[in-house]
């Protein structure tokens, strides 16, 4: 932790740099979403735009966490708490999202290979009648 006056003075410069980086990041997100010339992927919004937007947001979020929230030099306990929160939130999002994309239930025939697939009349997948 930046505790001494010297360190804090140095840190303040860093905060300003990060401030600038965050502004640039924000401008960049908006630019790639608004100006057709900078559009990635196909015309208009698509998956690639979403990924790009989320990547920029994640970078910005990391900067805030690492520098402003001092996660670049924190006690192990803090990493544990915060990490646990993120892991659980991830479980929540991942499993909830997954539950609707079940390959068998929702007939994604490619993934459902080897399982019963209602769209494709299966023949003896499991080796017995």
């Amino acid at each position: 932790m930046a505790d001494s006056v010297e360190e804090i003075k140095k840190a303040k410069k860093l905060y300003l740099i990060i401030f600038g980086a965050l502004l640039v990041g924000t401008a960049l997100t908006v630019a790639v979403a608004t100006f057709p010339a900078l559009d990635v992927g196909g015309h208009g919004f698509d998956g690639k735009d979403a990924v790009l937007g989320l990547i920029i947001a994640s970078v910005k979020a990391s900067l805030v966490m690492l520098i402003f929230m001092h996660l670049n030099h924190e006690k192990p306990l803090i990493y544990f708490f915060y990490g646990l929160g993120i892991v659980m939130a991830f479980f929540c999002m991942w499993l909830i999202g997954w539950s609707k994309s079940d390959p068998i239930q929702y007939g994604n025939s490619e993934k459902a290979d080897g399982f019963y697939n209602p769209e494709k009349p299966t023949t003896n997948v499991h080796g017995h009648d």
Partner: peptide, 9 residues
């Protein structure tokens, strides 16, 4: 904050 992460999660 960890609990907030799961709230917004």
């Amino acid at each position: 904050l960890a609990s907030e992460v799961t709230l917004f999660g």
